[in-house]
Every structure is written in C-alpha cells, then in structure tokens.
C-alpha cells in the first residue's frame, strides 16, 4: 500500500490531531475522554504483549498478571506517600524483575505449554492478591478506608482531571510506540523475529536464544507494569476482580485482530476492541443491552473470517502468508 503523503507528515498530522482532539469535543465530553484514556492504557499493554507474542512468538495468556503487579505496587507505594515519579520506575523494575524470575523456568517450554504456564501464573497472581489481606486488603481492594492514592504532581500542579490523564497517558503511549518501533528495527528486534521463525536456525546464526527470549519477556513485563501503575493512579482504586483471565484473553484478541507484530495493527486492534463494545452501548438501546457482548463476539468472528492475518498484518509476516488475495 502506498500512502499519498510521506510518513513523517502523516505521523505529525496524527500527533497534532491527538493533541487537540479533546478540544474538538469542546473539552466537556468526559465519556469520550475516558474511552480515549482506556484505549491508551490498553495500547501500552498490547504493545508490551506484542513483543512476546508478535515479535518473538511466545504465546502468553497471563499478561494481566504484570498489569496487576504494576497496579498493586503503585497503589501500595502511593498510599505511603511515595511520589508518582518515583513509584513508576519502581513498578517497572518490579514488573520486569518478576517477569525475569518467571522466565527462568518457564521459557524452557514451547508453544502450548508456555501458554498454559503463563495462564496459570496469571491466576496465581490474582489469587495471591485476593488472599494476602495484610498487603493487598484482599477482595476489598486498595486503598483501604481512610487511605488515599496520592495525586500525581508535575511542576507544581496536581493531575486530577481526566484531561490531565489523557495527556499523561498519551505521552506514555508515544513513548511505548517509540520504544516498540526502535526495538522492532534493531538487531535485537530482528533476533526476536528470527527466534519466532525458527529457533534452531536462529541459534545456529549466533543468537543466544535463551537470553534473547528472556530479554523480550522482561521488556514486555515492564510495559505491563507501567500500564498498571498509571491505571492505579488514574482510577484511584485497585481490586483483584480487575485482573481476570478474561482480560488476558482480551489482550491477545486485540493483537490477533489488529495484526500481530505490527505497531499500527496493534493500535487499531485496541481501538476496535475497546471501541466496539462502547459504541454498542449507545446503539443497542435498552432492549438489546443484554446482547451487547454477543454482538461483539459476532463482530470479532467476522473480522477473523475476513482477515485472518489481522486488520493490518505485519509486513514481514504477510510475506510468509500465502493468501490467494493480493494485498
């Protein structure tokens, strides 16, 4: 596909649109802003998951665990008055650290087995959060009665409105996109893809498979924890029911629908999967509200039937897929 304008112009156009977008709505539409923020959070999560599933081909069905770890770490630190700007790197390090430890035994597994173990880890994290009452306040969630997650302060202002969070999340999404993009085109990124395509061949070409896999795993865990930390500060409440297995599956679905291994595709998948249920909320009306998730499922099935490689497939991947229909 050839674009009518050159890529840098297109990118700056999109960026400009994102910056002024809240004002186009009149700055009053809390709902639209909330959905935009939610899309932003999911974008960070999916870009992180994309590093393992999309680039390296490691199927991870428990990614929400790292989102939860980030959110809980942030909530616990923040309740004790630690500033957001200090909390954030700690969360990212904790997320990455746990991910590294998980990777030590788990990365020896391949394919379906890895998926099952990560799935189990996701459940374990949720159950630990539910049962260690002393640390996480169990099912009642954090903060406890009388405690508060401290506000984010930046150059003397405190961020407390959705619009502030919109810009904060936008900044982190841009950072995540940038990191993903640079990573994809780096030596390391190519090593990821080589492992996805053929582990044995990659090893023979001089790639340290175990180490590279571990790096991919850790970086994606850091993305997850980052998203969790921002979410905890934004919503101001964390409870175990936010991190169910369904959420992890939802993330994988976003990547698959959008296009594995392609940043644009991942973003589109997030917009579609977060957006469609919300659009359905307004369109289905009172009578069909019960069927919202059913219609959502039908839309997803339709996408998979019409475009099995995702809406925007990865360039490298589309070269491998031999579909009769030309792109």
């Amino acid at each position: 596909m050839k674009l009518p304008i050159s890529k840098p112009y297109l990118m700056s156009g999109v960026l400009l649109l994102l910056l002024v977008w809240p004002f186009l709505w009149g700055g009053d539409n809390a709902y639209a802003l909330y959905i935009a923020c939610l899309i932003g959070i999911y974008t960070i999560l999916c870009l992180g998951l994309n590093i393992t599933i999309g680039y390296t081909g490691l199927l991870d069905l428990g990614f929400m665990a790292f989102y939860a770890i980030g959110a809980y770490t942030a909530a616990i630190l923040s309740i004790h008055g630690v500033s957001f700007w200090l909390t954030l790197p700690v969360c990212v390090l904790v997320g990455g650290g746990v991910r590294y430890l998980l990777g030590l035994p788990v990365l020896k597994l391949r394919g379906d087995y890895l998926a099952i173990v990560t799935l189990a880890f996701g459940e374990i994290v949720r159950l630990v959060a539910n049962n260690t009452v002393g640390l996480t306040n169990g099912p009642k969630g954090l903060p406890r009665v009388g405690e508060k997650i401290s506000e984010i302060r930046l150059f003397g202002w405190s961020l407390n409105d959705t619009i502030h969070f919109y810009y904060l999340i936008l900044a982190f999404v841009l950072l995540a996109v940038l990191v993903s993009h640079r990573l994809e085109h780096s030596r390391l990124g190519r090593a990821f893809v080589a492992i996805r395509e053929d582990e044995l061949a990659a090893e023979l070409s001089g790639i340290h498979v175990a180490r590279v896999k571990s790096v991919a795993f850790v970086i994606s865990g850091m993305f997850g924890a980052l998203a969790g930390a921002i979410y905890a500060h934004w919503i101001g409440f964390v409870s175990p029911e936010m991190f169910t297995f369904w959420e992890s599956v939802f993330l994988v679905a976003m990547i698959v629908v959008g296009g594995m291994g392609n940043i644009g595709g991942v973003v589109l998948g997030v917009i579609l999967l977060v957006g469609v249920p919300e659009i359905l909320r307004s369109t289905l009306g009172a009578k069909f509200v019960d069927y919202r998730m059913l219609v959502f499922g039908v839309v997803m099935v339709a996408v998979i039937i019409f475009r099995p490689q995702g809406l925007i497939p990865s360039k490298r991947r589309s070269l491998e897929l031999h579909t009769p229909e030309a792109e």
């Binding site: 959905i35 919503i235 029911e241």
Partner: peptide, 15 residues
C-alpha cells in the same frame, strides 16, 4: 451493563 468489571463500570459511569 457493567459485567461486574470495574473498567466497564467506570466507562458506563462516564457514559
């Protein structure tokens, strides 16, 4: 519908 999911709930609340 909030599906007993806090994220959906906040989104409905904003709606």
């Amino acid at each position: 519908d909030d599906r007993a999911d806090p994220k959906e709930a906040v989104s409905a609340a904003n709606r």
